[in-house]
Design a protein around this nucleic acid. Structure first.
Lengths: 204, 204
DNA sequence: GACACTTTGTTAATTAATCAACATTTTGTC
DNA sequence: GACAAAATGTTGATTAATTAACAAAGTGTC
């Protein structure tokens, strides 16, 4: 990004994005028209086409942006050094994840909402699994080394992750990213039962 | 308004107004700079000067607009026909008042807020009194006809009116304009004690 | 299927806003 | 009071957005 974006471009896109998410929340993606967006954003309809091809393009770009940002901080391999989890780094990652959630809060709230885009939750979980899977391959981690099938672990993690994000989005008073990092790192390293304070019976 | 206002003008003013009120709420009128407004509104600073002279001009125009709208629906004389209050018309007026409040909700909330403009409450009460007083003169109402001094009545009404508006602004779930009209017309015609359900001892 | 209405995608001329820059004024600190 | 930094008010060249209009496509109703 060698040149600074003209303020009008930046502003117009912001207005379009905000109008779009608001309208999705109100009436669902399918019912939203370009005219609706233009009216809500107080822009000329023709202006929309200077920035986006159609509403599908807009959705793609908004989603890409939010999810790219999320996956850029979801870097699991850094937490593992010689098969050992590094707590501090794990905590930092979770904190960044929730900072990203805060930043794109409206997007995720709308997408998970009642008029949100079809199957958004599953798609997000899939993205997370692919991201983790790809990173493992890059670093030569071998699934045979796991006691539990890799796929099972990935499904567990991605579903749990998204489940907790949905919980967080629904809180009227949201825990800070630091609080979430503290709590989740405990759950991840000790398992949910121990993190809740229960003792696990010793296995012979 | 023979010609339609260019959408850009409309939008730019809206963005400026919103940014301004937000900043007043955050840091108080005195601390707000034009640069602050431009940044918050995502406009070029020079653009501000295409629309307003300075922040005092902006405040004047925003206030004028909200208060003009309020006084345009505050027309007490229409409720009185041959010294008799017409309940239905009174209720309609109150309803319109609260519609105006809803429309300019952010403005009034900020102005009445902790960083709001100095003495806003008193100024608003004064405006209301003048408006009522002027209308009475136009229609030849004679203060001598009142059993209670005119000034006292005006102060009672204006203070009570503003007090209730402040109450309404603070409600997280606000009564609709219809509900407010129902309740307030009862208070006004029967007095606060009877409207609350108490019986008044008969005076000999 | 016929038809009316709505929405879309596009175009050229016009216009409000941006950018960069500057001199001046104001504010804050010592 | 001296000085640096921040804010103001302004200017001309450039640019993104608006307007008005049109043909075509899509939607809803009978």
């Amino acid at each position: 990004m060698s040149k600074k974006m003209d303020l009008r471009v930046k502003r117009t896109r912001k207005l379009i994005n905000e109008a779009f998410l608001k309208l999705i929340q109100q009436k669902g993606f399918d019912s939203v028209t370009i005219q609706d967006i233009a009216e809500e954003a107080l822009i000329n309809r023709g202006t929309f086409y200077l920035h986006y091809e159609d509403k599908y393009d807009l959705l793609e770009k908004i989603s890409r942006s939010a999810i790219d940002e999320l996956t850029s901080v979801l870097n699991p391999v850094l937490h593992v050094k010689e098969h050992e989890v590094q707590i501090e780094k794990l905590r930092t990652t979770i904190e960044k994840v929730y900072e990203s959630m805060e930043k794109n809060q409206v997007f995720y709230t709308v997408m998970f909402g009642e008029h949100g885009v079809y199957n958004f939750r599953n798609n997000l979980e899939e993205v997370i699994r692919e991201n983790f899977s790809k990173k493992m391959i890059e670093l030569g981690v071998r699934p045979e080394d796991f006691e539990i099938p890799k796929d099972l672990i990935l499904h567990f993690i991605s579903a749990a992750f998204v489940g907790v994000v949905q919980w967080w989005l629904k809180q009227s008073t949201k825990p800070s990213s630091q609080e979430m990092a503290m709590k989740l790192s405990k759950i991840i390293t000790a398992g949910p039962m121990q993190a809740a304070g229960l003792k696990i019976e010793k296995q012979l």
